[in-house]
Design a protein around this nucleic acid. Structure first.
Lengths: 147, 147
DNA sequence: CTACAAGCTCAACTTAACTTGAGGTCAAGC
DNA sequence: GCTTGACCTCAAGTTAAGTTGAGCTTGTAG
């Protein structure tokens, strides 16, 4: 088969692993774009596959569609994004991702050390940085804060 | 004031930073427990603060209430959980956390290294380990699902 | 002993992210 | 030319995780 230039919604669905209804939905939300045939059917450029891949991966790590949509705004609409375009997006997210990774590591490592420590006190305990003052004594808990 | 043995729902709310309605909700879902006064008001033992802290932290890293509820099942209902009890819980989650951390790293590193590389092909690319190969059917199964 | 903040229950509403269904159109193989 | 599967639109349903509100009860400070 000769290289397919444009993809139907069904093809995108199969190749991206995302339901047709979800693709419609993403389009309605402005995350992806398509143009229409004379018969009003959607056609996608191959770029859409990469976009959808990003959308899914980002979602899996807890980024909302709204945030993803905002980030994708940095990509050009008219042309296929260049490496540089993607780089901008990636650096936009990098800090947030670094933070999230750090948080998860702390939770993973801290869960065992801290959870049974009885340190439900002031902001020493990662699990208790709001204002609970009745308990005292914080054994060496690290901070695993959040957001 | 002598150390308070039991907490009202309002006190738990203030000290945990969680709304009263959310506490009711968690109780309905079996994540926390209370007993009632003769006048039908909830009273909580201090353990509930730690439970709620865990619930919030776990939620923030993307664990659903259902999963949290399942994990909390490993804690004893009748006595204050010991360090060992919490340890069981922590190791239960550790694998999931490890996996999630790996995912995040992939996204972080992959965004820069891979996203503009044109490698939307085989499983070399972290963002594309589903099966997209031009013209080769393959109704894709979803591979990179976490959780 | 009484006022009134704090509680209680239950139902309905909210947002996110989709899915399902109804009713109708398009396009490619025979 | 027809049949059939893929598409289209739009509305309504679904799940998670709560919030909001109405109507009624409790408990405690003065």
């Amino acid at each position: 088969m000769a290289p397919v230039r444009e993809l139907t919604v069904g093809q995108v669905a199969v190749r991206s692993g995302v339901a047709v209804s979800a693709l419609h939905f993403y389009e309605a939300r402005g995350l992806i774009r398509s143009h229409r045939t004379s018969g009003n059917q959607r056609r996608y450029s191959r770029d859409v596959l990469r976009r959808v891949a990003i959308i899914r991966v980002a979602q899996e790590v807890g980024i909302s569609l709204a945030e993803i949509a905002a980030a994708l705004k940095s990509l050009p609409e008219e042309r296929t994004p260049t490496r540089e375009d993607w780089n901008v997006l990636s650096t936009t997210w990098r800090d947030g991702l670094d933070h999230k990774i750090a948080q998860l590591k702390k939770l993973r490592d801290g869960l065992t050390d801290c959870i049974g420590c009885g340190c439900m006190s002031i902001d020493k305990c990662p699990l208790r940085n709001k204002e609970d003052r009745l308990a005292q004594e914080g054994t060496g808990a690290r901070r695993l804060v959040v957001r």
